[in-house]
């Protein structure tokens, strides 16, 4: 009786595991051929033969503070914004690796550096790192997750060999969106054809007021930046650090990393430019992009 029970249980377990893995592989295929996340958007919408002048990497501040389209119009360059919200410096380095490992080239990488990453970065997996998971079979992506996963359940680490573990654990992030891409493969999740995204005007500050800034002393000394810089150097790409505007903070930065730094933390002087204290709206993005383009011009000409 017990033997029969265990055999039946194993049989059904295998059938379910087989179907679940098959569905997960299909899901993986759908995500890789879609444009829903930045990783596949890059691979499916651009030709590696046509080099970029620059690419932008960052978190939500990179995604919404500067527009590659505006910079390109001013400098007649070709750029792309690969920033992803809710990511930190390690995820951004991973995206840079993905850019080059996918065969793309660029002369400059504009890294929109956030305060939490100035001195060191968390080794944890960021909330939106799952967007890189469709490329888990690639070593640099697998290594990233394997080094960071903790606990009993390790969906990314196991997911390379048993995709059902990954796609069931991240079902609302990966599996169900992949079904959506079946019907709309060109859909992009919160970014335009250049990878940019714009926040609306703030509803909190309808009145246009001049801003008062608090001066804050900061040091950029994150060792991961050296690794970032070195990686880019081997790919013939120069790192440019950019600190996007804040609504009320002026960062006085002491820099230990050699890469050029553009500190625009206090360049926008009115709250009408802001969606919230750390994100710009469309008006702010246009202004910040224009100011950045002026700073980039001499750097690009070098």
């Amino acid at each position: 009786m017990m033997k029969k029970f265990l055999i039946q249980l194993s049989k059904y377990f295998l059938i379910i595991a087989l179907i679940a893995n098959l569905l997960s592989l299909i899901s993986n295929f759908l995500l890789k051929r879609s444009s829903i996340f930045k990783a596949s958007f890059l691979v499916n919408n651009f030709d590696p033969e046509q080099a970029f002048d620059y690419f932008i990497i960052g978190s939500s501040r990179g995604l919404t503070s500067i527009g590659s389209e505006e910079i390109d119009q001013k400098l007649t360059t070709r750029g792309i914004n690969l920033s992803q919200d809710d990511t930190g410096l390690p995820s951004q380095l991973l995206m840079a690796k993905h850019f080059f490992e996918s065969g793309f080239r660029a002369s400059y990488c504009i890294l929109v550096l956030d305060e939490p990453d100035f001195e060191h970065s968390s080794m944890q997996i960021n909330d939106n790192d799952y967007r890189m998971a469709p490329y888990l079979q690639r070593d640099y992506i697998y290594d990233y997750f394997r080094e960071r996963e903790r606990g009993i359940i390790r969906p990314y680490t196991l997911g390379k060999y048993v995709p059902a573990v990954l796609y069931s654990y991240y079902n609302t992030e990966l599996f169900i969106p992949s079904l959506f891409t079946l019907f709309r493969p060109t859909y992009r999740h919160r970014f335009d054809q250049y990878g940019n995204y714009t926040y609306p005007d703030s509803q909190l500050n309808p009145e246009n007021e001049s801003l008062k800034f608090i001066q804050v002393q900061k040091k950029i000394s994150n060792t991961l930046l050296y690794e970032f810089e070195e990686y880019l150097r081997t790919r013939g790409c120069q790192l440019i650090l950019y600190v996007a505007p804040y609504e009320n903070r002026e960062l006085i930065i002491q820099q230990e990393v050699k890469a050029p730094l553009i500190n625009h933390s206090s360049t926008l002087l009115e709250n009408s430019y802001f969606y919230d204290p750390i994100h710009l709206n469309e008006k702010g993005k246009l202004e910040a992009s224009s100011l950045l383009a002026k700073e980039l011009q001499p750097l690009f000409q070098k």
Binding site: Y12, I16, I19, A164, S168, Y169, Y170
Partner: peptide, 19 residues
């Protein structure tokens, strides 16, 4: 039924709030 159970297991896998 057996078929419904397999279907239910798959729904469980791909719709459950594991996180």
């Amino acid at each position: 039924s057996n078929f419904q159970l397999i279907l239910l297991s798959l729904l469980l896998l791909f719709m459950a709030a594991f996180k």
